[in-house]
Design a protein around this nucleic acid. Sequence first.
DNA 1: CGCCTCTCAATGTGATCACATATCAAATCC
DNA 2: GGATTTGATATGTGATCACATTGAGAGGCG
Lengths: 258, 258
Amino acid sequence: MPRRIKAAQLALPRPKRGQPDRVQDRILGDRASEMRRAVGPVSRDTVQDRVYAELGDALICGRLQPGQPLTIRDLAAAFDTSVMPVREALRRLIAEKALEGQAQRSVRVPAMTPERLADLRRTRLLVEGHAAELAAAHVTPALLAALTAADAAYIKAAETGDADAELLCNQRFHFTLYEACGSPSLIAIIRSLWLQSGPYIRTAVERHSDRHRPSQRSARGSFHTKIVSALRKGDVAAVRRALEADLSWAFDLLDSRT
Amino acid sequence: MPRRIKAAQLALPRPKRGQPDRVQDRILGDRASEMRRAVGPVSRDTVQDRVYAELGDALICGRLQPGQPLTIRDLAAAFDTSVMPVREALRRLIAEKALEGQAQRSVRVPAMTPERLADLRRTRLLVEGHAAELAAAHVTPALLAALTAADAAYIKAAETGDADAELLCNQRFHFTLYEACGSPSLIAIIRSLWLQSGPYIRTAVERHSDRHRPSQRSARGSFHTKIVSALRKGDVAAVRRALEADLSWAFDLLDSRT
DNA sequence: CGCCTCTCAATGTGATCACATATCAAATCC
DNA sequence: GGATTTGATATGTGATCACATTGAGAGGCG
């Protein structure tokens, strides 16, 4: 378990040290940002929003290992900012249970225990299953097209063996489905659950890739395909069953050798 | 809609202005705190933990009105601290969707819309219904005793017409049940949902109290009693039905005249 | 009279300093 | 030699200052 946070884990857009400029200058003074501001009503990001988004991506994609400590000053150095944006970003992630932090103690990525794994599995089956049913209840051709494309992208990524790409495509497929459920509260809950289970899921995916040859790696893709075909038929119950099979497949990999 | 936060809304333990001491001195140097620290492994609270807890209570009990703006400096003055603890407490509540805040803009208690109400209702029925089923699956005599006592306390509070006491007893009854479900992730989700719906639920309860005489105010208590008796029989499905009736009763009051 | 612009106070965000606590290792005692 | 204590360093938390953005009201123009 690495004691220090490595910049590579965060996939930083640009560490760009040596220049004593401030991040807010780089972002707010950036020509691209100015253009975006002029073009559309884009919600003006703050620095802490960027830190939060980067850390969230790192968690969902499993670039941060369970149990790893995250110190404010190290992260601030990695993002080349002061401690303030990091403090608030960590506070948000702790509130969403994506990180755990006791008072006056270092923040850590939660450790993986069998109990926690079983708990997350049960809750995800409940919430994501319901979201899938809601989405299936008012399915549109546009949704089917988007999911078909996302499914194809996932299968392609899985065959290459690139775990990062595979996890990203899996995330896109699922959230394309969930965001069609029309329930902001459910979507927020699901996002929190993904932040919590991200560090573990990567282990499952890599374990599967190690065991199987590229041509056999599309097991999960077949679940996605089943979801799409059930949606096309309008079979709500079958959509839920296929989604639950997909989730259970990943969690079963973790249970088999924890 | 009040533009300024009134200290009474927060039920502050002690504003105690005039003395230029710091809150952390009052808390950490307090004799009671020192005793607690010596006695048990109590998680040492920080100032932001206290601010967070106070604001959370105010939200769940409906002392903050939907749409009301909360400014960092006003809250800091009300709590007699600097802005730092308030900033982090608000950030946590925003992350839990209990408050809404765009970048560079004031934090507000979310406004009540029919869509949001319907969304919260549906999600609460799903999640709290499931938690109740889990709790019913392994019910214990201790749980039954605790719920019976909480039910009695609620009915008593409802008859007095004290909305604050009634809401507090209702909260205690429900969370006594939910915490028996054994799922940390579900409990965290439910807490977030209560923070979100608290500002609206108070309206429902007060509306009911206005319409009915004290002797008729125990409508909700009868739902609680039904939950307990179903639990005693071990009838899981009936527990869920009774809980859903309780929740629907409150939300129906809001739908009837929004 | 209505709409626009300009200005100023209010407010959120970031940076930096100060300090108490936690953490870890070397030193000490039994 | 192992457990305990005592240092020094690391780290989270709170306070304060600085600054850009927001929002509303006064003033001016069509």
